[in-house]
Design a protein around this nucleic acid. Sequence first.
DNA 1: CGGCAATATTAGGCTATCCTAATATTATAC
DNA 2: GTATAATATTAGGATAGCCTAATATTGCCG
Lengths: 241, 241
Amino acid sequence: MARAAKTAAVTAKTKQPLTEPVEDYLKAIYAIGKGSGPAATNEIAERLALAPASVSGMVRRLADQGLLAYERYHGVKLTEKGRRAALRTLRRHRVIEAYLSRALGYPWDRVHHEAERLEHAASDELVDRMAAAIGEPIVDPHGAPIPTRDGAVDETEYTPLADLAAGESGVVARVTDEDAEMLRYLGELSIRPGTRLSIKSRAPFDGPITLTVGKKEFSIGRSLAAHVLIAPARDRGVRRR
Amino acid sequence: MARAAKTAAVTAKTKQPLTEPVEDYLKAIYAIGKGSGPAATNEIAERLALAPASVSGMVRRLADQGLLAYERYHGVKLTEKGRRAALRTLRRHRVIEAYLSRALGYPWDRVHHEAERLEHAASDELVDRMAAAIGEPIVDPHGAPIPTRDGAVDETEYTPLADLAAGESGVVARVTDEDAEMLRYLGELSIRPGTRLSIKSRAPFDGPITLTVGKKEFSIGRSLAAHVLIAPARDRGVRRR
DNA sequence: CGGCAATATTAGGCTATCCTAATATTATAC
DNA sequence: GTATAATATTAGGATAGCCTAATATTGCCG
């Protein structure tokens, strides 16, 4: 106890860079709470593929460092400090993804994996240079918004493709899953940020959704469609670069 | 003991990626032994800024993993496996340096620091893409040779500027120090790979060396000159790209 | 509102890596 | 060729993270 308190005091002063696991926890908590909401121990554990017990321990330490607000048995929330740290990591991650994709020709199904490792090692200077080199992108290759240097994020909400009615159309704004296989599949269907599409029909009882993309027509399942976010056709929401 | 043996057996099979500290040890040992020679515990410790006792421990583990040949009280040498691992890391490091310099405009005095962190996180694919993007460089921004994918390194030896006689001239092939201040200073003097220069005079008793670079003339100390390697003027040793 | 399921936490351990202090070995110098 | 200096190793301990098993808390359901 005495030691934990001392450590917290030291790190608070020292401002030493956060460790890799710590950044991962903060990112996970941010993702679960969408920036501000609470995150349950089990959810964090699942997202990080760790035992819940490990999370309890770490969460206490992060709270000691002032990164989390933590009440035993009641989950955690990011503090302002934690939120800023999470956004720094998120910015790194997404800038790196965008850079890998645009400057180095990485396919969109592999950028996540690579960025996951680089985000902890890249300096702010590097990230800024990357961003500058590709024209200060505002979204990553999956359409996720890139936080600005000072921690602002576009929080526009889009409609899941799964929720559109037959006859409606729009433009893909974002794909909210990093699974490589899924991304490759969507890529084959040309479903990626910027693609215009319209709903032809929706089979009942959670059945597949049939849609038109360019001249092609095909059906996809609901769960897949839930990961594809759509901006209304006339909306300026389709942000490239 | 039994446990150590078991761990070694497992990691030997598993072929899991080496940890960051392990890669750093191998790189240091490679650098000290110039690829094949022996490295003393204290030298390794100094280079990595660790206590010698820590090195003793780690070195034993690396030997258990078959990366080093180790005889107590007599230093270590890389095994073939260790050498290959060291060269992989070295290639990463130097490709990254070259990429940062050429693709992202990093000044040569800062590439080392950044590469030091990225080399452990970058995948082989990324490194290969970087290399391809800047035209498969064969030296890094300091003129150090980049090992090939299959572990070959150019081992050409150059003459330290400090050893040239008055009247001789040549082209800077390499600067063998990563100290940022030193690099900035050399940069101001235009002393960098590719620069042609000639020795005007050498003051006696380890005194300064006066040289001509383009139209400029100035003197530098012996210890600095020892870090500047020169290729004979007509030699093809000045490798750019 | 008592009891069980779901959820979370503590207890006790393990590994990798580092450190300091104590000790051992080698090398050097006279 | 032995004493001392230099070098290296072992002993003992710390820390961050992770794990499993045991235990505690919460919350919901009948």
